[in-house]
Amino acid sequence: MKYFDFVDKAPKIPALVVVAGDEPILADAAVERIVARLLPPEAQPMNLERLLAPEIDDPERIRESLCAMPFLAETRAVVVRECRQLKAEGRRALWRAAEEAPAGSTLVLVDLEISTGRGGKRPEPFAKLAPRSALVIETTTRREDRERFARELLEEQGATFDTAAIRALAELADLAELRSDAEKLVLLGRKITAKDVAAETLTPTEAKSWTFADMLLEGKTKQALTMAYELLQEDPKAGTALCSALAAAYLSTWTIARGERLTGRMAWKQRTLGPIARRLGVERAKVGHDHSVRAFEALVTGRYDDARQLITVLIATLPKAG
């Protein structure tokens, strides 16, 4: 079932759900919709477990969590992300646990078709292994899906736009890129046109670098590292874009932490970076900016030519809000 069909038809949530495809933004949205339908906010802390597949030492933990009695709720749920990061043995063990998911609880496996940074044969997707009783949500987007995403995003922001602008945004295959551009366009304060879209469009590398920076500042270190490695595999020269995005993000966070507002082309980041700035504080935000600038300079001047290693060290040392 395509993601937007899931949204519109609101099918019953079975014991096993597989979120497939290649679009992380829709995968995250699908997970949150599933959780919201199964459990009210007040019941989630005691009845919802969120796990990262590579960190699961024993899949028996999943079965035990699903079999436990709900606490002041009708059901329990376990969400396992980054399933594609598992090697063959780990995937088999996780799938055995999925096959034993008991009725009355829900196991959600997020198994996206993304690069893992490892070569070799790709594993069999869980979506193909899923029985008929399972719900498979496909996040890979078609043009009409991206048009709907762009339209709903702009409407949510209270923006006005013409049809050509929506079509232009839908040309962007990556939703992170589309969302970044749309949020900047909203700040124009007038009707958005296709010409505006053309003037503001980020390159795919720039858009992914901004998403990487946001993830890292939020404390999603492993996800950020995975995205950085994937981007460097696609574009070996992306190290400068990654460091530049980090420097700009920390500079903006530092600005907000000092009680100032972002202006110009960075004003669109005020809303998302505000909570991060409050948690990081002035000093830590400045440290993050200074480290990122030095890493950028090291790559640009050729003092350091191994971008993957530099990014790995940088990510490990930068202050984070999480």
Rank of each mutant, 00 (worst) to 15 (best):
Y304D: 12
L169H: 03
I114N: 08
L273V: 00
L202F: 11
R303M: 08
V186N: 09
E42Q: 15
A27Y: 06
E74H: 07
A307Y: 03
V108G: 13
T272P: 03
L217R: 02
P40W: 09
A198G: 04
R118Q: 14
S133I: 01
A267K: 13
L48I: 11
I114Q: 14
R146T: 14
L48E: 15
A199Q: 04
H289P: 04
S252I: 02
A27S: 09
L217N: 11
R151G: 09
C67I: 09
R143V: 13
L16V: 00
L26H: 04
E200S: 07
P125C: 12
P14F: 01
A228L: 02
E218D: 15
E144S: 13
K12H: 10
R284I: 07
R143M: 13
V282P: 03
T203I: 07
A150Q: 07
L135H: 05
V136H: 00
V78P: 12
S252C: 13
E230D: 12
K208D: 10
A98C: 06
D8V: 10
R91S: 11
I192Q: 06
A285F: 13
P102N: 11
A298M: 08
L172G: 04
F161T: 04
L107N: 09
I166C: 04
A316I: 04
T312P: 00
R278A: 14
D174C: 05
A182Q: 08
L16C: 14
R84P: 05
G219I: 04
S65I: 08
V17A: 09
E171L: 02
F6N: 11
V110A: 07
F6W: 07
L135P: 03
S65Q: 15
R167D: 05
M46E: 11
R81F: 07
D162R: 04
F126K: 13
R151Y: 08
T203H: 00
A245D: 13
A159S: 12
T253M: 12
V110I: 09
R132Q: 15
L273Q: 08
L72V: 13
W254D: 06
F212N: 06
S180P: 01
E55Q: 15
A248K: 10
K12R: 14
